[in-house]
Amino acid sequence: MKWMAWTELTITFFTVIATILVAMTIYEIKKPCLERKGFLPIETTRGDRLFIGLLVSGFIYLGFMAFTDFNLYIALAISVVWLCTVLRWG
């Protein structure tokens, strides 16, 4: 991964995303879900909420890298909280 100049945190971030996708796929196969409406303005399935959560988490991470000098663990923590919130109540 040195050719891409990735940090260990970035590699961890994308590894966690891949692991979540595999886990959610297995969970969806074993226990299919129905659409429901939470705080998001649309009816969503578990996969929809995962996609929305991961998309916004990616933007949070990129925003931290582009606009701040803060530790990237803060962006990771915010992304995890956001993803858990969307999956639970979205």
Rank of each mutant, 00 (worst) to 15 (best):
G63R: 06
I29C: 03
V22R: 12
T25I: 08
R49I: 05
I52M: 06
Y61S: 03
F64H: 08
L54M: 10
F67V: 07
R36P: 02
T68Y: 10
L55G: 15
M4H: 05
T15A: 10
W89E: 00
F13N: 06
L62K: 14
W6P: 03
E43L: 10
F14E: 08
I42Q: 06
G38M: 11
P32R: 13
T10C: 02
I11V: 12
W6E: 01
V86Y: 04
M1W: 05
L87Y: 06
L87H: 00
S79I: 09
G90D: 01
K2S: 10
F13W: 12
V80N: 01
M65F: 07
M1D: 12
T12M: 11
I52P: 00
N71V: 12
K31G: 01
I17Q: 10
V80P: 04
I17C: 08
V56E: 01
P41K: 08
N71D: 13
G58Q: 09
M65I: 11
L62W: 12
T7L: 01
V22G: 05
L34G: 09
L83A: 02
S79V: 06
W82I: 08
T15P: 01
K2C: 03
L40F: 07
A23P: 02
F39T: 03
A18E: 02
G58S: 07
F59S: 07
R36D: 10
W89R: 14
T10W: 00
K31T: 13
